[in-house]
Design a protein around this nucleic acid. Structure first.
Lengths: 138, 138
DNA sequence: TTAGCTGCAAACTATTTGCCCTAAG
DNA sequence: CTTAGGGCAAATAGTTTGCAGCTAA
């Protein structure tokens, strides 16, 4: 995943700075956690030494704008990021804020949406909110 | 839609204050716009005279927590609300922030999710982001 | 009567922005 | 050498919260 991200960065003409490489490494290593900016900042800082939170934000923003990574936006909690840009549903636990991937068993034809609703889809946001096994009991 | 909301409020033991009734009326009237708190505040204020923004927020929060209405959460723009709680996809235009409903042609069995992923879904958040017809050209 | 609601103001916090400096290509 | 990117500090803005009255039921 890391190499494919770097390849995309080169393709798009984005600079490969030590800070960016550290951010990507953390995102890839912890992608199962769907880390937020603060976690990425803390972990990447350990690797690179010199890093600011605003750099983390601007980097993740830019990469997400380029479709290299995916930003999961939330209102009540910090945004989360993932390297897996394949279409899937994110299961968001209301109890512990854990996020898990769920492989989509069905898929909607986006051409249908363009035709029926006259709407051109650029990205999808599919989430199920609820409770994971650990939090269900409480 | 308005009467069914009021019915649900009674069922849940929620008080029907003039402020709440005005908020509901606006939400129902403008539900196609998927209004935000500020629009609801402005419009409801015209109806009821005495109203504060924090009342709007607490009311919409509580109703959404009870599953009476649905809150669409965003990071970059204000949250939006809708009275239509049937499962559907919201088409969110990145150009003008317009939100449209799209009837879901397929549906995922939530029991499958519970079994396969051990995750108990309480609510769904299905959005396609992109550009509406007006914004597509720009 | 009283639990729940309203309203004001202050607080919160994740994110963004402006500006100047640094370094990647 | 040129311009994108990094870092700091300050600003932003939607939302929440604490608390002192109200009022719907």
């Amino acid at each position: 995943m890391k190499t494919s991200i770097i390849k995309k960065m080169r393709e798009k003409g984005l600079k490969l700075t030590p800070q960016r490489l550290a951010i990507i490494e953390v995102l890839v290593d912890k992608t199962h956690l769907h880390p937020g900016a603060s976690l990425i900042y803390r972990e990447a800082m350990k690797k690179v030494g010199s890093l600011s939170l605003s750099t983390v934000y601007s980097t993740l923003n830019e990469f997400s704008r380029h479709g290299i990574i995916k930003m999961l936006e939330f209102d009540k909690m910090e945004n989360r990021y993932e390297g897996n840009i394949m279409e899937h549903i994110n299961l968001v636990c209301k109890g512990c804020n854990k996020i898990m991937d769920y492989k989509v068993p069905v898929s909607i034809d986006l051409k249908e949406v363009a035709k029926k609703a006259r709407f051109w889809v650029t990205d999808t946001r599919l989430e199920y909110h609820g409770y994971c096994q650990e939090c269900k009991g409480k």
